[in-house]
Amino acid sequence: MKRSLFYSLAILFFLFPAILLGLKSVTPIWRWGEPLSFNWTLRGWTSFWMDDRILHALWLSLLIALTVTLINLAVGMMAGKALSHSSFKGKSMLETLLLLPLFVPAMAAAIGLHITMIRLGLANHWTGVVIVHLVPTIPYTIKIMKAGYDRLGSDLIDQSRMLKAGPFRTFREIELPLLLPSVRSAVFLVVTISMSQYVLTAIIGGGSVITLPIIYYPFLQSVDDTVMAAFSIVFAILPVFAVLIIELISRFFITKNSFFNRGAV
């Protein structure tokens, strides 16, 4: 009963809009009351591919998003673990401080960071864009990883260490596999946020770093639903793709038997 409810809700709220979006990207505009006609058009997709930089932009967006994600996971896990498992003076204050970047308007942050990036020589370069994308993402990742470590608790980690596993092996074989759900949420969120940064990318990348949103966002001010649907589909697929990549990396990294296989008889 519950299961069928879940599936019908999933179809209604997820599958149906997705299919509708797909249909919209290959059909001309349809007006209320008009009979349903199926005039297929590839105009949405040809517009999408029109800009010859789109492929490069896709790869660059993905590269930036994945780099941002990896830095996020590294920092988020260390900070999340520290916030969750150790107690020190001013911990709750630090936790609040770490959330603050989320409340700074993007434009204000962008201007301040732009000057710094120019001085560091990172403006107009994709690495600079990576660094500014950390601003709106790191707070979320720390929050997610802290919740993950809260849920995991320190007992299993202690137990692993009591069984002669060092910190690295404990991380790889216990923490990482058990935190995978949190890692997944963080990756999805970070990739989506990174891939939707227009202002930060525009200012810091200064037009030298052409990512998907730089090409895509101006089209949001258009009434051409067919083109927008095509862009939206790509925009929605990219995070899924990125999550798959991260999943593959972590699979490779975790593989619980790899340790055993080394030097097996």
Binding site: H114, I203, S208
Partner: peptide, 26 residues
Amino acid sequence: RIPLDTNEIIQKLETEKRAGQDDGTI
């Protein structure tokens, strides 16, 4: 051709001026 909103373009130039960057990309 670099697609960027005009507001961001001016913003970029203003900041570059403040930072004393005289070799712009625009």
